[in-house]
Nucleic acid binder design. Structure first.
Lengths: 129, 129
DNA sequence: CATGAACCTTGACATCATGTGAAGGTCAAG
DNA sequence: CTTGACCTTCACATGATGTCAAGGTTCATG
């Protein structure tokens, strides 16, 4: 398979596949005589794995660890679970932070008339710390 | 006031204050004879405003618009409210996206034993799309 | 007055994941 | 052989921020 085909099949862009190779997240694929990257089914599995992990918001570093765990037949599921729980905490934290912003802003917006007059609690609040 | 003083007083870093100046978010302050930036109270108000808006998660572009609205005495509060509501929607969307990730991952983690055995639904799920 | 600490200046490079574009080689179908 | 769709590498851009370096300034203290 050429790169655009695995890109299509994995849901990643060709750009990112090359990038993952360059940062050594992935083994370099074999090349055709003319230098084209040739991907195997195994490569495709790796790429799909990466795509899925990224979809769940894992950082690149976490993805690298997950990949390593995936390859490691003697891993314990607790190692994976630990990683997942760390990421869960990060997600929770981000959610909480965003909710706090949302709540503050929603309250400001609620108290703003939104009419033709210039007076606006939102601006006022930003201006007076 | 020198830059480190307004930095301290506004909650921004000196680095970012210079940056905001370079992207013309802020008017360039006057300079002392030796070239040091000299900030007025008015400048400080601007910087605090920016800091507050960033704390609420507004993008730099939105901050620029908010600043313009703040200066504009003839603005209607509805303009500000509209901007705030746009941002609220973005926040809501991010929250929803993160919650979806969290829920999926939490379910996977829940079903993972987390013991010494290698079998792990988390890894399995990533590996089989 | 001289020295040193603590400030200031600009400029450059790094982060991170990703996009875009250019310049040029390859392949397959017409 | 030509054309179009691929492929290659390299480089630059994003956005907000940190950090480092080389050099000038200010001020307090000896």
């Amino acid at each position: 398979m050429n790169i655009s085909q695995v890109a299509q099949a994995s849901g990643l862009s060709a750009r990112m596949i090359r990038h993952y190779e360059s940062i050594e997240l992935l083994p370099a694929p074999t090349r055709s005589e003319s230098g084209y990257r040739q991907y195997s089914q195994r490569d495709l599995h790796n790429l799909r794995f990466i795509h899925s992990a990224r979809q769940l918001g894992f950082s690149m570093e976490q993805v690298a660890q997950l990949l390593a765990l995936w390859q490691d037949r003697s891993r314990s599921s607790s190692e994976v679970k630990l990683l997942a729980q760390q990421h869960l905490q990060e997600l929770e934290q981000k959610i909480v932070d965003l909710q706090a912003m949302r709540d503050t802003l929603a309250e400001l917006a609620r108290s703003c008339q939104g009419d033709d007059r210039p007076d606006c609690p939102i601006i006022n609040s930003l201006a007076t710390p």
